[in-house]
Design a protein around this nucleic acid. Structure first.
Lengths: 391, 391
DNA sequence: CTTGTTTGTTCACTTCCCGGCGTAATCGGT
DNA sequence: ACCGATTACGCCGGGAAGTGAACAAACAAG
């Protein structure tokens, strides 16, 4: 009836301490683990033998170097064995679906992508996604039964309470809880979130935001969204729709936005609109990749447009930085790495944010490019599995 | 050499669990404590006897009612004995100093206030504050040696790393770390923070934001600042200067602000400026109190000005709500409770924030009025003492 | 007065962690 | 090649903490 005893919880806590230390630092000796956790060597030994019995860790055959330069018995390194089973990630964009199969450390083993007009109707896209997951598992040589969890993202805010897509941003997805739907199709737990949030998670774990505690990740592509990391954890807000930075109003009489308001920042800086601005001046058909290339090459028109867009985004970010005083701003999405965009953002932050706030924030491009989302969904799935009891 | 053993830490953790439960729920029986903490009655008994030996809790003479309506041995309630020693709070504003002496539960026993031009020079104000603390202790009949810690706030952002006041907002306080200075004068630990932050803490603990996890507390008085609570904890940012909502630019060619920019929101809505707008139309000299009274009485001019100010603030808050998706917005400061101001804020949030964000946020006036800060500084001191080992 | 219920305590037992001792393995010096 | 120094690891006994069962105490209801 009552919760399991405190002593067992203590042991569990110590076990977790050992495992996280091991996860963070890589293979180590028992003695090092003892030093790192503050536990005694005896206890660590006991924990490690228990963990070896359940197969969660194993000893490395390769002997490590003695502790401190000098002599001594060489330690036996104990290493985290890759947990059994696998996970998958599903990145659903406006115009693409991308899936990945990965082991439970987050290493991606197979990947698939399709171009597809996702917006139009949801069920078909979800069928397709489920199919791609199964296919990716096959390519990676993983039996379907090994799948433990799936992470997914959609390019729209997701209400955590109804698990529905908030507001009519994505037509054809009304009243369709994407997580539940995919879960029904695949038969394993699905963790769904917004694309900017998983992007932030990816950059936080493996990208430009590694080690930062307070970071704002902005994603600029078809839309404009932000994933906000505070205290090292994703901030989702009361109803889970935090990060809607794209709907700051920048002009009373601006273009009408899909959200229903007028003059939203998103209508000014979204990639399609920027391309629309530039296209008349170029012969070839522009794409975001081409625009980025032209920017790196120093094309004046592109630089001007991207710099202006950066300034507009930076204006909103400056306000947000004043409020949150973050350590970093990471810019992702298809246009994220453009130098002019970054410069524009930096300039606006320097201009509009408080001097001390501006001085303490780093502005950097995302390191994961268009694979940020899929990396993040995999991380979401890995975290989701780890949160359950390891049984 | 090594850290104290895990077992002792376990007992300490369980003791803390009992204490916090007791602090949250008030006097309870040992059996209830066992149910609440998940520990066994036996363990709780053991912990309680230990706590009674050190005098941290005591049994109430008044017997409680049996657990569930029916019969049974009546429980003997154990209650948190007011911890020995006391704390003090120091609220430093632009034009006043207010101090309070309180017991370690946060109950205020004596209070003093002075009007004083604090901005001009820091050292004098700090001397004065230290003097007032000693005086308040005397009035409360507390020996000076009982003072364990002091919480204080200043009306300016405070850099946590240098513990200095950030930027030249407060002239005469440059390079003067207020916390350290007061600590030197009083000889006990001083925990210093920004006024909006402690206000948020106060409303969170004892006011309008009780029980909320994500709240934005805005303080509108001489300046405009925000204290941001996320996940039930104050968010201070990387360098501790989060919440600078007053320096959102609302007009390129606005008035020059003390922060160095032009057109900051603060220059438009700060109380002195609002009073300056209204004064010409009134015979008597206006004060914030009078303005609030006129607003409640339905004075058209005041309502218009406050409503416009609310809309301006609400505009900035709407953007922040879009980013953070909080549960509540609490408006404090001398003009906080004005109905027109609140209406204006609510209207702007409804207009400019995403519909789902606006729908999930409550806008309310602070409940603590001009005593929010002093309550918060006391809470800061209480928390600061509790964080140390109870020895 | 008896019965039932809830509380709080005592006791025997288990779980867990720690320190010390002994053994294993390697390095550097002679 | 040998020997001390150093580090790593396992085993054993001791101590600390928590738990369940049993028991006395205090009341309400019948």
């Amino acid at each position: 009836m009552s919760i399991s005893g405190s002593l067992e919880r203590l042991r569990a806590a110590n076990t977790r301490a050992v495992l996280t230390l091991l996860a963070g630092e890589g293979p180590m000796s028992r003695a090092d683990l003892a030093r790192g956790t503050g536990l005694s060597r005896t206890t660590v030994s006991s924990l490690v033998t228990a963990l070896m019995a359940t197969g969660q860790v194993s000893e490395t055959t390769a002997r490590g170097k003695p502790h401190k330069g000098g002599s001594g018995r060489p330690p036996v390194l104990v290493t985290l064995s890759a947990p059994s089973g696998c996970v998958a990630g599903v990145d659903i964009g406006h115009r693409h679906i991308r899936v990945a199969a990965a082991d439970r450390t987050g290493r991606i083993l197979a990947e698939e992508a399709t171009d597809l007009d996702v917006d139009a109707h949801g069920p078909g896209a979800l069928d397709r996604a489920a199919h791609m997951v199964r296919s990716a598992l096959r390519t990676a040589g993983l039996p379907r039964g090994d799948l433990r969890a799936v992470g997914m993202c959609v390019p729209a805010p997701l209400d955590r309470r109804s698990s529905r897509i908030s507001t009519g941003i994505l037509p054809g997805w009304r009243d369709l809880p994407p997580g539940d739907e995919l879960e029904r199709r695949l038969g394993v737990p699905v963790f769904a979130d917004n694309d900017a949030n998983v992007g932030a998670l990816a950059e936080l774990n493996h990208g430009a935001a590694r080690g930062m505690l307070d970071v704002v990740f902005v994603k600029l592509s078809s839309g404009l969204g932000a994933g906000i990391v505070l205290g090292g954890r994703l901030h989702r807000g009361t109803s889970g729709i935090a990060g809607e930075i794209g709907h700051v109003q920048v002009g009373e009489d601006g273009q009408v936005c899909r959200c229903g308001n007028r003059g939203c920042l998103e209508t000014v800086v979204a990639a399609p609109r920027l391309i629309g601005l530039l296209q008349p001046a170029y012969d070839e058909e522009l794409s975001t990749e081409l625009v980025r290339a032209l920017d790196s090459a120093g094309d004046a028109g592109v630089r001007r447009v991207l710099s202006d867009a950066g300034r507009a985004v930076g204006r909103a970010l400056a306000d947000l930085c004043n409020s949150l005083n973050p350590e970093g701003v990471v810019v992702g999405g298809s246009l994220g790495p453009s130098p002019s965009l970054l410069e524009g953002i930096r300039a606006s932050i320097d201009r509009y944010a408080q001097p001390d706030v501006a001085a303490s924030v780093t502005v950097a491009a995302g390191q994961l490019g268009d694979r940020a989302e899929i990396t993040g969904t995999v991380a979401l799935a890995v975290a989701g599995v780890a949160a359950r009891v390891p049984a």
